[in-house]
């Protein structure tokens, strides 16, 4: 049964088995590989996307459950917050390997959309679901603060 998903503003019919997580629909069915697989159980945040503006872990979200929502992935970020965050990330070269950074950026965009001036504690709360094994945490924190200043 095809499911109609609205991803980055574009509606797409997806014919995947019921229960297939959004992550694998994005990656394997739609070829959108910017959203990453890291753990499969919502522990690492690499698969974070926005559903109706909220960050969710696409690895545990059945694709049919997000039919009718607005899904935004790293490829579709277009808000001013996102542009400022991406620029802040580039300005100090936050990423090392970069694999987790799609998820980091999705979480950071949501943080700044809801909190213009996050404290260290706010950053901890918003970002601790996103593991970076390269441990680029010092620069993620810095870039979020830099972006907040610009916004």
């Amino acid at each position: 049964m095809a499911v109609l998903l609205k991803i980055n503003g574009k509606s797409q019919a997806v014919d995947a088995a019921e229960g297939t997580p959004l992550l694998w629909v994005l990656r394997d069915h739609l070829g959108m590989t910017g959203t990453k697989f890291g753990c499969g159980i919502a522990q690492c945040g690499a698969c974070t996307v926005h559903v109706d503006g909220q960050p969710i872990r696409s690895c545990i979200t059945a694709h049919e459950d997000v039919e009718g929502t607005d899904i935004v992935t790293i490829e579709g970020l277009s808000s001013r917050q996102a542009a400022v965050i991406q620029a802040a990330w580039e300005a100090i070269d936050v990423p090392q390997c970069g694999y987790c950074q799609s998820g980091q950026i999705m979480s950071a965009v949501n943080l700044l959309a809801n909190n213009a001036n996050p404290s260290d504690g706010d950053i901890d709360d918003a970002m601790s679901g996103n593991i970076c094994r390269c441990a680029s945490y010092m620069r993620i924190r810095q870039a979020i603060k830099d972006a907040a200043k610009k916004l």
């Binding site: 910017g34 580039e90 970069g98």
Partner: peptide
């Protein structure tokens, strides 16, 4: 500046799994 970061922040890097 890193030559990979501009792609990374847009989800455009191609890793083995991609």
């Amino acid at each position: 500046p890193s030559v990979t970061v501009p792609k990374i922040v847009r989800g455009e890097g191609i890793f083995g799994i991609d």
